[in-house]
């Protein structure tokens, strides 16, 4: 692993978006603290690993999840629903970071327990700023139970 452990989990199927987010993290020396997963199945496998019988699962729970909605196989809504319905993960903040700015997506995300909904800005400056601010807020300012 690395010195800061997994703090940020990014679920993003678009490699360009993932790389742009990582670029911001690199600038803030956070690139080593995150894991990028390409779809809902990978995300769920990471959060809820199959454990061998009688052996506790090796859980690596992040401090925050940046979740895209439109994902191959299992979509973001399903990942969100699982995170929020499991006792062990329900307190992990989930930030929806998506291209969508559709009202029904915003509503459904909040209905399922999303902690924040951010439409990815198209303008690079705004995009970079949004990622930097979100990271700063959820990792440094926000407090979670047991921290």
């Amino acid at each position: 692993m690395n010195k800061c452990g997994i703090e940020i989990m990014i679920v993003e199927d678009n490699p360009s978006d993932a790389e742009l987010v990582l670029r911001v993290f690199r600038k803030h020396h956070l690139a080593d603290c995150c894991v990028v997963l390409k779809d809902g199945v990978e995300a769920l496998d990471f959060l809820f690993p199959e454990s061998a019988p009688g052996e506790p699962a090796a859980r690596r729970l992040p401090k925050v999840v940046f979740l895209d909605l439109k994902l191959p196989r299992v979509d973001g809504f399903e990942v969100l629903r699982r995170i929020k319905s499991e006792e062990s993960t329900k307190n992990i903040p989930v930030v929806i970071l998506t291209s969508s700015n559709q009202e029904r997506d915003i509503k459904e995300a909040y209905d399922l327990g999303a902690n924040s909904f951010v439409s990815k800005p198209i303008k690079a400056e705004e995009f970079n700023q949004a990622v930097a601010e979100l990271t700063a807020y959820w990792l440094k300012l926000n407090r979670l139970p047991g921290q």
Partner: peptide
């Protein structure tokens, strides 16, 4: 809304 934005964001971002 979703699919046309993504490449634009990539153009702008890179």
């Amino acid at each position: 809304s979703h699919d046309l934005r993504a490449p634009l964001r990539a153009i702008s971002g890179f």
